[in-house]
Structure formats: structure tokens, C-alpha cells
């Protein structure tokens, strides 16, 4: 597998109307991957979903003190690794304490992180000097 290096960086206001844009970028990247032998349509949907969920999460956790807060999203593909980083300026949260949803007792919330964890290969959430970053890795 030898995809060309792709690097995308997008900065959006903390408004949900931009979710379509962010998700669509992931979908397009999946559809245009040069060397990918898996289910391309499924990967396109999954990247759309993961970017949508991660960005929604960042918007929810955005700093209320900053009226013009933004979310930065980077997507980087090198060799067979697809790396997504979503930066927020909020208080952050402890990802380890987010419970795994009980699928036999479905609830309305709490599925976003479950999707990211289930569909991707690695997820971490790290505190930075000026916010937090959710890093997601998918091996292609």
C-alpha cells in the first residue's frame, strides 16, 4: 500500500452547520485513496461519521468564554496510516471515564465516542497548553 501524502487542515467556527463540510472532506478522501483494497464506501461513511462525531464533540466542549471560538481539524495520510486530530479550546474531559454504552439498554446519548472507538484503530485525548486534542488513527 503506498498512498501519496495527503495533509488537510481546516479551521471552522464552533457551529454545527459546518459538520457537513468536515464529514464530506473525509468522505472524499476515502473515495480518492489510490491504493485501498477494502470496502471504499464503508470507509467513506466511517470517516464522515468519525469526523462528524469528533467535531460535534469539540463544538460541545468549546470554550464558552471565547465567543469566536474555533475548532481545528487536521487529516494526514502517510503510507497506510490515516491520522485525524481535532483540537478544541474547552475544559476537556477524561475519555477513560466515558462509559461504553449498554447496547441492550439503548440511550439517546453517548454513542459518538463509541462509534469512533469501534470504527477506528486508536483514539486518544490529550490536554495541551491552550486546549485539547482528540487524535484518531486508522490503518488503511
Amino acid at each position: 500500500m503506498c498512498n501519496k501524502v495527503i495533509q488537510v487542515e481546516v479551521i471552522i467556527p464552533t457551529q454545527t452547520k459546518y459538520l457537513d463540510l468536515i464529514g464530506s472532506i473525509g468522505e472524499h478522501i476515502a473515495k480518492d485513496l489510490e491504493d485501498f483494497s477494502g470496502d471504499r464506501e464503508a470507509l467513506a461513511y466511517h470517516l464522515n461519521l468519525v469526523l462528524t462525531e469528533a467535531t460535534t464533540n469539540a463544538i460541545k466542549h468549546a470554550s464558552s468564554a471565547m465567543q469566536k471560538d474555533t475548532v481545528k481539524i487536521t487529516i494526514h495520510i502517510h503510507d497506510n496510516e490515516l491520522n485525524i486530530k481535532v483540537y478544541d479550546h474547552g475544559q476537556g474531559f477524561n475519555m477513560e471515564t466515558v462509559p461504553v454504552p449498554d447496547l441492550d439498554q439503548p440511550k439517546e446519548g453517548g454513542m459518538g465516542l463509541y462509534f469512533i472507538r469501534t470504527l477506528m484503530d486508536s483514539v486518544s485525548y490529550t490536554r495541551l497548553d491552550d486546549g485539547n486534542v482528540l487524535e484518531i488513527i486508522k490503518y488503511l
Binding site: 464529514g23 462525531e53 439517546e108 453517548g110 459518538g112 462509534f115
Partner: peptide, 13 residues
């Protein structure tokens, strides 16, 4: 053609 966790949540509600 696309639904996320919040969409599923709205229908479940």
C-alpha cells in the same frame, strides 16, 4: 444517506 449518533438518538427518543 448519512446519520450520526445524535440522529439515532432523536429517532430513539
Amino acid at each position: 444517506r448519512f446519520i450520526d449518533s445524535s440522529g439515532l438518538g432523536a429517532l430513539l427518543s
